[in-house]
Design a protein around this nucleic acid. Sequence first.
RNA 1: GGGUGUUUAGCUCAGUUGGGAGAGCGACGGCCUUACAAGCCGUAGGUCGCAGGUUCAAACCCUGCAACACCCA
Length: 930
Amino acid sequence: MTLKGTFEPSSLERPLYDEWESSGYFAPAGNGRPFCIAIPPPNITGRLHLGHAFQHTLMDALTRYQRMKGRQALWQMGTDHASIATQMIVERQLEAQGISRDAIGREEFVKRVWAWRDHSGGEISQQLRRMGSSLDWSRERFTMDEGFSTAVNEVFVRLYEDGLIYRKKRLVNWDPILKTAVSDLEVENVAERGHLWHIRYPLLDDRRTSEGADHVVVATTRPETMLGDTGLAVHPDDPRYRDLIGARARLPLVGREIPIVGDRHVDPEFGTGCVKVTPGHDFNDYAVGERHDLDCINILNDDASINDNAPEAYRRMDRMRARETVVADLTDLDLLASVEAHDLTVPRGDRSGAVLEPWLTDQWWVDVKPLAEPAIEAVRDGRIRFVPRQFENMYFAWMREVQDWCISRQLWWGHRIPAWYDDRGNVYVGRDEGEARKNGGVPDGTALARDTDVLDTWFSSALWTFVTLGWPERTPELERFHPTDVLVTGHDIIFFWVARMIMMTLRFTGEVPFRTVYTHGLVRDAHGAKMSKTKGNVLDPLDIVDGISLEDLVAKRTADLTQPQMVTAIEKATRGDYPEGIRAYGTDALRFTYCALASPTGRDVNLDLGRIDGYRNFCNKLWNATKFVLMHAEDTDPDAPAPLGLADRWIRSRARRLIEDVERAIGDYRFDLYANAVHEFAWHEYCDWYVEFTKPVLWRAEEDPAAARAARRTLLETLDVLLRVAHPITPYITETLWREARAASGRPGETIMLEPFPQADDIPDDAEAEAAVEWLKAVVVGIRNIRGEMGIASGVGVRLLLQAGDTTDRERLRATETLLRRMAGVETVAWLAADAEAPPSAVQLVGELKVLVPLEGLIDIDRECERLQKSISRFESDLGRSEQKLGNENFVTKAPAAVVAKERDKAKDLAAKLETMREQLSRLRGTGAA
RNA sequence: GGGUGUUUAGCUCAGUUGGGAGAGCGACGGCCUUACAAGCCGUAGGUCGCAGGUUCAAACCCUGCAACACCCA
């Protein structure tokens, strides 16, 4: 029995997933306690990126682990229609063909989006499958599938009936490119350089300022909005303007008479202390206007051009041109007092990048406060726990200040709002038109028109955990799997999604949506830069899995850019970062890397290919270790006794420790510790030591067949444990190797996926074996150290002398001598009497035991003296520090007795070692001189 | 302006209730030793951001400062 070929991830991974899927392994099974994760539904906007792959790896690891622990594990699959983002993609594609969406109409447009959804959804599924995700595809959902639409209507109607959804005309954030309202969360406040224009507003009725001027000066960053001014405001306590409250001014360019009001919200420090009030185009001014009963004039069209409420000269101008024109006209009239540079915050749409305008429109709103209170409580009382914890503060802070949520969007792609209007503008809400009619008592003859708006995409995703399980039906899945166990997501969508899910789920199921929220950071490139198409530094996870040539990568990154001038820079950076393209690392290596990088603080992750390279090597190591095991696996006599040797007992005990460590790590969501524990055990215990220990036994099996049998069985059984422990992280290679190993051991088992996760208690804790092997390792490392530093070639055997050991040392040598000889290249071993004169030797201490390698014929004495001097200096400084501590009376009296005792032991040990080394040095020097 | 987080080896990061500073990668030296050169053996490298404080004892606790990142206004 041997493993064929070499480790080639792609040929090994591809066939397995199909087999798992068609065998139905991903569906929840058995009678164990249910476990459920709902995938954060990827947007159907395009292909998945490295951040998705990161989060999917963690979810899959958790799901596979729980499945192996015997739980009915469901990882719920689904995708999100992503209203705005998807509509933009399809619109752009149509534009490229010279088609506008208005030209083809709503129905045809929506049809094309569905076609896009099929395409993009297909790509996403393929990517998820290649990453090994054990999702239950048979239950896949989409936020616009039929059941989801029913549920969305249900929720909308119930909230409306409860008075928590209402329609109202008020200022919203308006995106003049997308021509839709957006919510507060979709606004990005960007710091930009701008100007502060100082404009003179002439006073009426012969009023004067305290300084005698016939006008006031107003500072503004947006002069064009003066066309909609309906007042001026000053702080009521401001001595400069106090007396002008109640006076009137004439609005330049427009001619309107506007009042001066006193309002405590005016900041006297800003500009001149006198501000213009434009209730129709500024959130603060709107509030000022309401307090002082000022008119509200809308001067903008839906594309942010000036409308007919402004003077003729400015109509139909874009707002930026209007600004220039207004400033020029004011200059001509000598009404522009001054202009200065000014930094300001500009609100931009997170999707379109357009500068948003506060705009007065009718929109649908959710009254969030009543929903927020129970949602805050659920986190406060611990029914929901955030990992890492600090995100709870962010959550509380936002929830306490939460504003009403604008949920209507003037888009075509999304859930149509279930509201109808008659020709007098009365609104009727219902699950369908019939119900709306019935509720409103609208006779059949009266025509109703459905609201043309759609809902914010987050409205439907807020229902994700319970609607995917069948709500509003009371399905068995809903009973069994809800609340879900853990939500794995980025901290960037805590407000958009996590908070809203908690609110909606509590409202409609009375349950929390999940018990734990695990938030991870963003995946960035190796330099810590955020990945973006515009910057041209994105990677498709499959480019890492399957590899990609430099030319293909450059082509991919420079295609379809919104800023074609970036091509040269992107190409240069790409060629610099990946001079030879990207090698095929395989899914397992990428997954292992993700786990190893999942830090406990939830901060951003810089994905470095060098790191992946190391973990690909790790997969190769597993492959070769298995190859070795299978080469020696043949057990001709499976019933014959096989008493375990010291090394066998040691590795088994270490395997027990591995399981314990991993269980703890997963319980704490410490994927990094999990990965490290597997790596450390597999490479540095199993491969570096145990496999080497078995070689002398296996190569001379005929000398001691029982020992060889014990080694074979231990190799196989420990490998089996290791593979099962590693499987949730690296599913493909562990499945492949596990099947080979199982075949060799003759034990049944179809797939590692459904094997039980190893249990620590099944393996004895063997402290004695661990201590003995630690001793052996220390001696071997000591000799290797001498060999390395003295330049003794690996082929040259050494004579080993031991001195000053106690009975335990002698016992341990007896038990491990064969291993010691092989591991350290030792030809002969002899004990020297404690008082015997040793030949000139290099020395290493293991406790009190002196490990001596005679130097004669091997190397020169000076080199050893140098080496000795180095360790003497190290011992001296350590001892110095220790003695200083012990000399401090406060330490001795105040520190816990155990700490003091430990320090005393340490000092004693160091002193003894130092003496030995000094003796050794002077003896060697004497020899050298002679 | 308010808040949160980060600052540890050349790089990327661990460091669990305060008690002898760690890993991976990289670097350097030696090895194609019959699973693996995608490997093996060995070595070097850190005033733990800065300044104070608490303590017998601080990377860890407290205060202040600096830089960077993100969130909110």
